[in-house]
């Protein structure tokens, strides 16, 4: 199964990246952890994100679209980075997440969320639904 692992933001990560000694040590530990993920065939993708001060939000309300500039207030709900892992089950994802070095100087949090997979739609998307879907698409394409 594929999971996305979110590194939740903290006040430190929202401040940007002051190059402290602590940071360097963390990056080194994180590099080692990433290498372990790669060698175990678990790592699919991953990267870090700039603080929310560099971000924007688009708010939808009916036909209206409002653009809101960062930074955003609710720090604990923000994301500072992510991985995509391929694991056998959630237990394995948790076991890997537990051996991640703390990504932040202070207390921090990882959140693991499984992707929807084909099997999740297995029963919902019957051949009939898929076929009707295809017919609709063909009609839209002008027969």
């Amino acid at each position: 199964m594929r999971v996305m692992v979110f590194v939740k933001a903290t006040e430190d990560s929202e401040k940007g990246l002051p190059p402290t000694e602590e940071m360097t040590a963390m990056f080194e530990a994180m590099g080692k952890f990433n290498e372990e993920l790669v060698n175990a065939g678990v790592m699919v993708d991953g990267d870090g994100l700039k603080p929310s001060s560099a971000g924007k939000r688009i708010a939808f309300d009916g036909p209206n679209r409002a653009v809101i500039d960062g930074p955003f207030a609710e720090t604990r709900e923000l994301v500072a980075g992510y991985w995509i892992w391929e694991v056998k089950d959630m237990d394995e994802a948790v076991a890997w997440a537990k051996r991640c070095p703390n990504p932040m100087p202070g207390p921090s949090e990882l959140e693991i969320r499984p992707f929807y997979e084909m099997e999740d739609f297995g029963e919902a998307v019957t051949p009939e639904i898929a076929e009707r879907d295809q017919r609709l698409r063909d009609q839209l394409a002008g027969e």
């Binding site: 175990a40 056998k88 089950d89 237990d91 394995e92 948790v94 076991a95 890997w96």
Partner: peptide, 8 residues
């Protein structure tokens, strides 16, 4: 949890 660690 232990078995997951073991599998890894």
């Amino acid at each position: 949890a232990i078995e997951a660690v073991f599998r890894i």
